[in-house]
């Protein structure tokens, strides 16, 4: 069966939402069991006492990148049908910076705050509630940002094309970089004093 299954017409479109529930469950389980329901564990990355975020995040990124390329190589996935986040330069950078500030203040990102709320962390629930206000404020003030929101459009550009190399070669370098980072993180974690949380 050539993926994505939903686009291939093998199953009816209603299955998409059923997949969504189960994929979400896997997502929530993976995040919570890795410790992403604890804001102090997450924020440890930035003070060097716990690099769980870096480890989980980059392991997931390389596993899925490698997996998709292998599936595509074996003809199991039609890469051209996958949703590739389009690149809008200005809004990606500024949005990222704003999210970084929110991350450092709240100690969560949207997915992890939901996991924290699910296991009874009130701070997670409040963070998630705060997001509604933020989204509402953005939507209401959208005309102010509209030009910026659409500026620097580069379409569904892939990062390997920036360096002029193949996706496979880029992923190879990504794996090397990630492993280097994991060793570096372990080294720093041993140097930094431990913090109880």
């Amino acid at each position: 069966m050539i993926g994505p299954i939903v686009s291939s017409g093998i199953v009816s479109a209603a299955w998409d939402n059923i997949f969504a529930v189960f994929l979400g469950m896997g997502f929530g389980f993976a995040l919570e069991s890795s410790g992403f329901s604890s804001s102090r564990k997450i924020i440890g990355t930035f003070f060097g006492y716990d690099f769980v975020v870096v480890k989980v995040f980059f392991t997931a990124a390389i596993v899925s990148s490698l997996g998709l390329l292998y599936l595509s190589y074996m003809g199991l996935v039609d890469y051209s049908l996958l949703y590739i986040q389009p690149t809008f330069l200005a809004s990606a950078i500024l949005g990222g910076i704003i999210m970084g500030i929110g991350f450092a203040m709240g100690g969560f990102c949207p997915g992890t705050s939901l996991c924290a709320a699910a296991v009874g962390r009130i701070d997670g629930l409040v963070f998630f509630g705060g997001m509604f206000i933020g989204v509402f404020l953005f939507s209401e003030s959208f005309p102010l940002f509209e030009n910026m929101y659409y500026s620097g459009s580069m379409g569904a550009k892939m990062i390997n094309s920036v360096f002029g190399i193949s996706p496979e070669l880029f992923t190879f370098f990504l794996v090397l970089m990630a492993i280097g980072m994991f060793y570096g993180a372990g080294w720093i974690q041993n140097k930094v004093k431990k913090i109880e949380y």
Binding site: P86, S91, G96, P110, V126, M131, I133, V135
Partner: peptide, 24 residues
């Protein structure tokens, strides 16, 4: 700070068309 962080994060996630999971 959770509330403020969530508010700012929510705002930024709309600007960047996704959050740490959806975009990054």
């Amino acid at each position: 700070f959770s509330l403020l962080g969530g508010l700012i994060f929510g705002f930024g996630s709309q600007l960047a068309r996704g959050c740490t999971s959806g975009a990054a």
